[in-house]
């Protein structure tokens, strides 16, 4: 009973907030609704017993990705009239993307129903063994069977990160950075000088 109520609550909220994400006029509202959609999707994950994925969804998407979205969208000065003017022009392209996504989803669900995939079968034979937690099951798979794929994913991420830094970093010669160690090493006796200037004469430091 409680399962059913929770499922329908999360499912309806996910779809509704997903819809409002693309319908709302204010981009900041859109991002906030998107966050609510992520959050409810995490709730759905918990209902199927994938608590680890649910937590990662909240930590990564809600905690990091969406904050950056919000950060960027908040700082943009968006002209709503211009946005709406582009709607008709981009409509066919949008429809195309939507059709492709729909076809993929139908195909995916069909393939899942057919039970052709070994990873997750509808009758639950590929479910994690009882008595192990999510994290243990995922860890055992990632670090044994899919070790090289996992490492390759890590290397790709590293390359992407370094690439982003290389593309955006520029060395500027005209700035004077702080050297914290030098500041800490400064002592009063070398930083201050006592001078007794003669009247009417300047001081050379």
């Amino acid at each position: 009973m409680i399962h059913v109520i929770a499922f329908y609550l999360f499912a309806v909220m996910t779809i509704a907030s997903g819809a409002i994400t693309i319908l709302s006029r204010n981009p900041v509202h859109s991002v906030l609704w998107l966050i609510l959609a992520f959050f409810n999707a995490a709730g759905l994950m918990i209902l199927v017993g994938a608590e680890f994925i649910a937590m990662l969804l909240v930590i990564v998407y809600v905690g990091a990705v969406a904050v950056l979205f919000l950060f960027v969208v908040m700082m943009l000065d968006i002209d709503f009239a211009e946005l709406r003017a582009g709607f008709v022009k981009n409509f066919p392209l949008g429809m195309l993307v939507a059709i492709v996504l729909l076809a993929e989803m139908v195909l995916g669900i069909g393939a899942y129903k057919a039970g052709a995939l070994q990873l997750g079968t509808p009758d639950g034979t590929a479910a994690q063994p009882a008595g192990t937690t999510n994290i243990e099951a995922i860890g055992a798979l990632l670090y044994s069977r899919y070790l090289f794929l996992f490492e390759a994913a890590g290397v790709i991420l590293l390359v992407a990160m370094i690439g982003a830094i290389v593309l955006t970093h520029r060395q500027r010669g005209d700035t004077r950075g702080q050297k914290i160690s030098k500041q800490i090493a400064r002592r009063p006796d070398e930083a201050t000088v006592n001078v007794k200037p003669e009247v009417g004469k300047g001081v050379q430091l």
């Binding site: 680890f52 930590i59 905690g63 990091a64 904050v67 919000l70 950060f71 908040m74 937690t133």
Partner: peptide, 21 residues
Amino acid sequence: INVGLLYVLAISSLGVYGTIM
């Protein structure tokens, strides 16, 4: 829950929204 510490991390990452909003 088994993912207790991850839950704490997840919730603490939500805390920033109140401030940003």
